[in-house]
Amino acid sequence: MIKIAVLVKEVPDTWSDRRIDPGTKRVDRDGDVVIDEINEKAVEAALQVKESGGGEVTAVTMGPKNALDAVRKALAMGADAGIHIIDEALGGSDALQTSAALAAALGSRGFDLVIAGNESTDGRTAAVPAMLAERLGLSQATFLRTLTVKDGTVTGERMTDDGHVEVRASLPALVSVTEQIAEARFPNFKGIMAAKKKPVETLGLAELGIAAGDAGGANSWSVVETVAAKPPREGGTIIKDDGTAGQKLADYLASAKLI
């Protein structure tokens, strides 16, 4: 039976008007927040590993009070337990600090496999999984579109610009998965009710052993200097067909790496 940790996060709904607070220069989390879609897929991947060979899945989140909803969603889908890292002092943490907090929470618990989404839809640094693997001293396999765990080895297809590379690592390991990994299941009513009874551990700075002087936006290694609204959309390029339109269109799509 392998122990799996899956990282989940509440993010502003991508369907809503997302904004950055110009005062704090942080993402405004007061609007509609939902579990990040990539995390639902990561949870699905974790549950499939569990269902294929037995295991226990713990959903881990860091964030304010409502971040717990992401853990609850994972529990309703079928995860067994949750960890909620919550402390006012952690507000504004950058990727380095976030990975440090996660490492402190996961460190001594003996997880065989940590699964994360490849990047969140709010911060989009795509750095936390790799940083966390480094901090925990785990093998890392990022950007996987497939995932199989067998006989103590994790294998998968890592997406690259040109195609994919088959990678594998011995457990314990950390993987990050892309949106192609799986379609997330809907929790059923039994799952929703059972989720309320599953254990969720709450950890703050003290439990993590992180000094207040190292925590939060005021002590972060990266600084947001300015924030600006996305400029309004400009008109696209119109290609007139003088016989070369097909080539021009193909060149454009290739330059944007769409084909």
Binding site: R185, F186, N188, F189, K190, G191, M193
Partner: peptide, 22 residues
């Protein structure tokens, strides 16, 4: 798969343990 057909039935008969309201 979602358990909708078992919503108002107790778990002993394979239901979801909900009620008529659910």
């Amino acid at each position: 798969d979602l358990g909708l057909f078992g919503l108002p039935f107790p778990e002993e008969v394979g239901g979801q343990g909900g009620d008529y309201f659910s």
